[in-house]
Design a protein around this nucleic acid. Structure first.
Length: 545
DNA sequence: TCTATCACATC
DNA sequence: TGATGTGATAG
């Protein structure tokens, strides 16, 4: 098989987040959470190119509108020492400005992201379990940290590769009887491309256009809080691929790019998730789980050298067995550290060492989103033309809508969030869903859905506006399932069920997941890319229990 | 030179 | 059978 074509720069005139940053400082546009469109991504959108694969199916399942607006929302800056104080000021400012729209009117405590403000729940013996009270602990945190210290590499293959370390979390604080959907997405951590140069990761240019965003919904979803809290929640079956046309539902990433996995918990109660604005969710980010995607480990030589040195064993065989045991995390990091010292003074053509970038390792953070802006961002014409089946949300608008929103007292974003996280580097700002649509059941297997951001200048119907991207959500298919069907057939929606889904009846909760996912979008500035903050998103009017 | 992909061995 | 790492090789 020949090498896949690399994404080519489209030479777009539409700038990415970095370029779009206004002159008020790096925290300016970022704090407003503005995004922009990347036509390159659109050009590679199979749905737009007649792709008959799963994403095309997802595209056909798109429809209803959802506004999208990015907010900074009273997030704590745990990394002020790393230069995020400006961001914090901005956050507080925004929080104050939005305080009136909050149920309690009290701004969140900016110094305590893990101690939600009253309007988002309570702690203590009498606290009512809400999504705000959910705590998530990363399993094998130390291992993740060890990887992270050297720059975690995550193998991606055409067929899909599992993550290592696998993403497992311990969840507490859920309402045992409430149903939740747990899902993961992986967003660009910055807009750089990296290369492994002289035994360390260096920035090697601007990132390729992001892959079509996909989400991995935990196969147990939806499940009760009791279920999730009963044991570790493992996402070990999540697979990463660099195949742009991946038919398996794996998360598509660009090689040699840095990514940040995020865990989303969506409350899925029937009365709260559908047909209303009552979807509550929270997002947890563990900075140490960020990684650089690679098609093969870049620093295995270090590992081998170290193994030879330390154990005096056969490098090859030992390396393999050792890798199986620990993926060489410890030694790998040690080797990296050694090499870092040795290479520090070399004059290399490489640019900025990856490891020089500020990197935070700490508690997970969750995003708290502010109240929605609702209809202001909707595209009524488009809404009216979609079928009920096409329950799908899309973010609001291109740049031209930014000034149209006019619904808040925030500085008008120069660019709006037209894209889901697939093209939006990870940042510490949350995005708020504007509105959800009445739930329309998806097929049992919960196939793809696609985000259809709408530009107001584009009429609806089947065509998609330029600048949009889609973000597919579907359970991953086994490769054998795909092989059965053959690669060129249209996505067999009715047969694409992973076993775990087949056990479940059609679930409206998955729709909620979609909606939630579409509601999430983040932008990033280079400066903020490694500042991990948290918050929680709660759609307005959500009432717990 | 760098990266992606494949076949293969191993578990 | 599926997952994974390695080395050769293509581009």
């Amino acid at each position: 098989m020949g090498r896949e074509l690399r994404p080519q720069s489209a030479g777009s005139e539409i700038k990415g987040p970095l370029q779009s940053r206004d002159k008020s400082g790096p925290e300016g546009a970022a704090a407003r959470g503005t995004l922009t469109q990347r036509p390159e991504a659109v050009s590679r959108c199979p749905a737009l190119l007649g792709d008959s694969g799963p994403r095309a199916a997802g595209a056909s399942a798109c429809g209803s509108a959802i506004g999208l607006r990015v907010h900074v929302f009273g997030l704590q800056s745990q990394h002020e020492a790393q230069g995020s104080s400006c961001w914090r000021v901005r956050a507080e400012e925004v929080t104050r400005s939005r305080a009136g729209a909050l149920r309690s009117g009290a701004p969140p405590n900016p110094d305590s992201p893990h101690a939600p403000s009253p309007q988002f729940g309570q702690r203590g013996p009498n606290a009512v379990p809400t999504v705000e009270n959910i705590k998530v602990g990363l399993h094998e945190k130390e291992l993740w940290k060890k990887f992270h210290e050297a720059g975690t590499e995550m193998i991606i293959t055409k067929a899909g590769r599992r993550m290592f370390p696998s993403y497992k979390v311990k969840v507490t604080g859920m309402n045992p009887k409430t149903k939740y959907i747990l899902l993961i997405d992986i967003v660009p951590a910055d807009d750089h491309r990296y290369k492994f140069c002289d035994n360390k990761w260096m920035v090697a240019g601007k990132a390729e256009p992001a892959m079509p965003g996909r989400l991995y919904v935990h196969p147990d979803s939806p499940a009760t809080g009791a279920h999730w809290m009963r044991q570790l929640v493992s996402f070990q079956k999540l697979k990463l691929t660099n195949n742009h046309l991946d038919p398996f539902g794996h998360i598509i990433l660009n090689s040699m790019h840095k990514y940040q996995p995020r865990l989303h918990i969506v409350k899925a109660d029937e009365n709260n998730a559908f047909g209303s604005k009552n979807t509550a969710f929270c997002t947890h980010v563990f900075p140490e789980t960020s990684f650089i995607s690679v098609t093969s480990y870049q620093n295995h030589k270090d590992l081998q050298k170290l193994l030879e040195k330390r154990a005096g064993r056969s490098t090859k065989g030992t390396a393999r067995s050792f890798m199986k045991e620990t993926r060489a995390s410890v030694l790998w990091c040690q080797a990296d550290a050694d090499n870092r010292d040795g290479a520090r003074h070399l004059d290399l053509p490489c640019k900025r060492p990856y490891l020089e970038a500020p990197s935070s390792v700490g508690e997970d953070h969750y995003f708290r989103s502010p109240p929605p802006y609702d209809q202001q961002m909707l595209s009524p014409s488009y809404c009216s033309e979609v079928t009920p089946r096409e329950a799908c949300m899309y973010s609001g608008s291109g740049p031209e809508l930014a000034g149209v929103s006019g619904v808040d007292d925030l500085p008008p974003p120069p660019l709006s969030c037209n894209m889901w996280t697939s093209v939006s580097p990870y940042t510490n700002y949350s995005v708020q869903t504007m509105e959800t649509v009445p739930y329309q059941p998806f097929p049992t297997h919960f196939t793809a859905t696609t985000m259809m951001p709408r530009l107001p200048t584009i009429s609806a119907q089947s065509s998609q506006p330029p600048g949009n991207t889609h973000f597919s959500v579907y359970n991953q298919l086994s490769q054998s399932q795909v092989r059965e069907r053959g690669p060129s057939t249209s996505f067999p929606r009715e047969r694409a069920l992973p076993p775990v889904c087949e056990r479940k009846p059609p679930s409206p909760h998955l729709s909620a997941a979609n909606e939630f996912l579409y509601s999430q979008s983040f932008s990033l500035s280079r400066e903020s890319s490694l500042q991990y903050h948290s918050g929680m998103g709660t759609v307005e009017n959500w009432t717990d229990g």
